[in-house]
């Protein structure tokens, strides 16, 4: 964790984040970064679960992996936007071409993070939508 970004400054205990990520280690990483802000985290392993959890918990923000089993992140984003049109969805994917970014925005994502992601960047982007 870089020194200038003090996680203590963030208290998102009243916020909910849904992380859609099929790769355990990547989820753990996001979780470790975010849990210090006291934010509530929900983990969806694929797109279908992401939709289910979004419906159930009405999260404030969604970190969405694109390449996931059963239903990919783009499709899940489109579905979630139908019933939560105002929720901000941030794509985070190991695909890193311009086209992937474009597809994400077309699907309704508000932002795009390309892996590898640094902790600082996560906080930066998330705080943009929380503050």
């Amino acid at each position: 964790m870089s020194s200038e970004l003090k996680l203590e400054n963030f208290n998102w205990s009243n916020k909910k984040i849904l992380i859609a990520e099929d790769e355990d280690s990547n989820f753990r990483f996001l979780e470790m970064v975010l849990m210090r802000t006291s934010v509530k985290i929900f983990w969806a392993h694929d797109g279908i679960e992401a939709i289910k959890l979004a419906k159930l918990h009405n999260p404030d923000l969604i970190l969405m992996d694109i390449k996931m089993p059963n239903m990919d992140g783009l499709e899940a984003t489109r579905e979630i936007k139908k019933f939560l049109p105002d929720v901000h969805i941030i794509a985070q994917t190991a695909f890193a071409t311009e086209n992937d970014e474009k597809l994400s925005f077309e699907a309704g994502c508000s932002d795009y993070l390309s892996k590898p992601i640094r902790a600082k960047k996560i906080i930066e982007v998330v705080s943009k939508y929380f503050e």
Partner: peptide, 27 residues
């Protein structure tokens, strides 16, 4: 090419992410 990028980036994500976190005294 696209797939290779993905396959490299995925483990790298964990490696880089956790490597950075290791230096965090709070852990």
């Amino acid at each position: 090419l696209a797939n290779m990028s993905h396959e490299i980036r995925t483990p790298m994500n964990a490696i880089i992410g956790f490597s950075n976190l290791l230096s965090d005294p709070e852990m």
